[in-house]
Computed example of a mutant assay.
Amino acid sequence: MNPVESLRTHRLLAIVRGNDPDAALRTVLTLAEEGIEAIEISLTTNEAPAVIARARAELGPEALVGAGTVRTAADAARAVDAGASYLVTPALVDVWQSAGIPEVPVLMGALSPSEVELALMRGACAIKLFPASLGGPAYLRALRDPFPEVPIVPVGGVDAVAAREYLGHGAIAVGVGSPLIGDAADGGDLGELRTRASAFRAAITRGTP
């Protein structure tokens, strides 16, 4: 399943970033055990390429393990080499400047209508609306009018309540970092992570139109 279809189905993109690579990997594996299909490992995570490679080895070739905070073509190359099956950028990025990098789907960061158009021109498979908290669900609702068919994933400040609102206003999914991950990727309690994952999945289900 490609990332857009998975996000349409499961409505949640988990964003993992942390200082402890072993804890980050445990976080990814726990999220997968809890039924969260799409997991993004931020390149700001310590030893991120190694974490991506280890997660890929543990979860198999079909798992939707992606790389986030991709800002340059060099970032894209490192992530794809490590096994990322999709890339997520914080802004407009020309990730395919370097020849020879296998192209994978890109969720490209954008905020304004002009940036959405540019992201689509650069081959984005979906738009990461970032930072979504700047305009909130009402801004997404306004943005959907000129872009009704564009897959949009709000990211930034999305808690369980906001997640339901974004989904109700036409987001295909929401991207969630610290409200879901907490301190798990820095060595925090995995039992608490499982509790948060369950709560978010329940909220997402209630928020599905």
Rank of each mutant, 00 (worst) to 15 (best):
A162C: 01
I181V: 14
P49H: 08
A32G: 07
E37H: 08
E34L: 01
T44V: 13
G168H: 10
M1A: 15
A142L: 12
A79C: 07
P146K: 05
S112T: 15
V80I: 12
A163N: 13
V153R: 09
A24L: 11
T89M: 06
A67F: 03
T89G: 03
R201D: 06
S198F: 07
T27A: 12
Q97Y: 02
A132D: 09
E5F: 02
L111A: 05
P90H: 09
A63I: 09
A160H: 09
D183L: 08
I15P: 10
V65A: 04
G123Y: 10
W96K: 02
I101M: 05
A184G: 07
S198C: 09
V16G: 11
A160Q: 15
G123F: 08
S98P: 00
M1W: 03
L167N: 13
G60I: 12
A197N: 04
L180P: 03
P146G: 11
I39N: 06
A84L: 12
D183G: 10
R141S: 14
S178K: 09
Y166A: 15
F147N: 10
A24V: 05
R206M: 12
V161H: 15
G177I: 11
V150I: 13
L167I: 14
L190Y: 02
L7D: 10
A202Y: 00
V16P: 08
I204H: 01
S6T: 15
I15F: 04
E62P: 03
R78P: 01
T27H: 07
L92N: 12
L29M: 08
V161K: 15
E5I: 04
T72R: 06
D183T: 10
E192P: 00
R56V: 04
A38V: 15
A203G: 07
H169V: 15
D189M: 09
P21S: 06
E149S: 14
V88G: 11
I39K: 02
M1T: 15
A202V: 06
G136V: 09
G170D: 07
A48K: 13
G207H: 15
G182N: 06
G157A: 05
E103F: 00
Q97V: 09
V93E: 00
G35T: 06
A32K: 12
A53L: 10
S178W: 01
S198R: 15
F200T: 05
Y166T: 14
I36T: 07
M108A: 13
P151S: 06
V65E: 08
K128F: 12
Y166E: 15
S85Y: 04
S112H: 07
N19I: 04
A160Y: 03
P90V: 05
D159Y: 11
G18T: 01
L143R: 06
A74P: 00
W96F: 06
G100C: 12
R26I: 01
L7A: 13
H169P: 00
V4L: 08
A55H: 00
A82F: 02
L87G: 03
A185P: 00
I41Y: 11
D159Q: 06
L25H: 08
G177C: 08
P102F: 00
T208C: 12
M108W: 02
V155F: 05
V80Q: 01
L120M: 07
A162E: 13
G60D: 11
V65K: 01
E5W: 00
